[in-house]
């Protein structure tokens, strides 16, 4: 997996200092090669709630279509996303709503 590791490093360097949305996008593109990808920052809707932080970037929704989800259970699909975003959860990502589809699904 040397090639994949190298790719991850490039993305990490390229997104250093970027917004969380940009980092989420880079991580999901690298991990899942999605055919469609939409990232919505819901943080402002949760301002003042538990988990919200003054700088925002705590609550997101992702909508992803990826071949990687084909044949995978709902839990397995979300685990793929959670695993790809481990670093974000470790640094203040509080809530992530997910709509995950394989190509050809609704």
């Amino acid at each position: 997996m040397g090639a994949a590791d190298h790719g991850d490093k490039e993305l990490t360097d390229a997104t250093k200092g970027a917004s969380r949305a940009a980092r989420i996008e880079a991580a999901l593109r690298a991990a899942l090669q999605p055919t469609t990808l939409e990232i919505i920052d819901d943080s402002s809707r949760h301002a003042g709630h538990a988990g919200a932080q003054p700088g925002g970037e705590t609550h997101f929704t992702v909508r992803v279509t990826a071949q990687a989800f084909s044949g995978a259970s709902r839990v397995a699909r979300q685990r793929m996303v959670n695993d790809a975003l481990h670093a974000e959860f470790a640094t203040g990502l509080h809530a992530l709503a997910m709509d995950l589809k394989a190509p050809g699904e609704g």
Binding site: R74, V75, Q78, A97, M98, D99
Partner: peptide, 8 residues
């Protein structure tokens, strides 16, 4: 058995 979170 774990079923899932809110979305699931």
């Amino acid at each position: 058995e774990f079923v899932g979170g809110c979305d699931i």
